[in-house]
C-alpha cells in the first residue's frame, strides 16, 4: 500500500539508510505564533546535503540542513530555535513572525 503524500520523508530516510548513507532527521517540536508547519513535521537530510520534507515554509531549512551536517558527524542531537526574538531569525528570516523549535538527531 502506498502512503498518501509521496515522497514521504521517513520512507526516504529508511531507503537512504539501506543504501548506506548517513542520515539526520529534523522534527518540529514546538511552534508559537503563526508557523507554517505544525509540531511533528519532519525534514530528513543525508550526508551529501540531500533533503526531503519540511519544517517551515522554507525559511529555516538551510540553517537546519547546515546543523544536520554537524549532527551526522558528531552523533549528538541538537535543539534549534528560530524566531523573531532570536537574532539568527533575522538572518534566516521566519517571515511569518512565528517561532519554532526543531530537534535534529542522527539516524543510528
Amino acid at each position: 500500500m502506498v502512503l498518501q503524500q509521496p515522497p514521504d520523508p521517513l520512507i526516504i530516510a529508511e531507503r537512504w539508510m539501506l543504501e548506506g548513507r548517513d542520515v539526520a532527521i529534523a522534527t518540529v517540536i514546538e511552534t508559537w505564533g503563526s508557523s507554517p508547519r505544525q509540531a511533528g513535521s519532519q525534514l530528513v537530510i543525508d550526508n551529501s546535503g540531500n533533503f526531503e520534507g519540511s519544517v517551515s515554509g522554507g525559511c529555516v531549512e538551510a540553517a537546519v540542513i547546515a546543523e544536520a551536517a554537524d549532527v551526522i558527524r558528531h552523533g549528538k542531537p541538537a535543539m534549534l530555535e528560530f524566531g523573531v526574538a532570536d537574532e539568527t531569525a533575522w538572518k534566516v528570516g521566519l517571515s511569518c513572525g512565528g517561532r519554532i523549535k526543531v530537534y535534529v538527531e542522527r539516524l543510528g
Binding site: L10, E14, G108
Partner: peptide, 10 residues
C-alpha cells in the same frame, strides 16, 4: 533515532 524504530514505524 534508532534505525529499528524507524523500520517499525514505517
Amino acid at each position: 533515532m534508532d534505525p529499528f524504530c524507524l523500520k517499525k514505524l514505517n
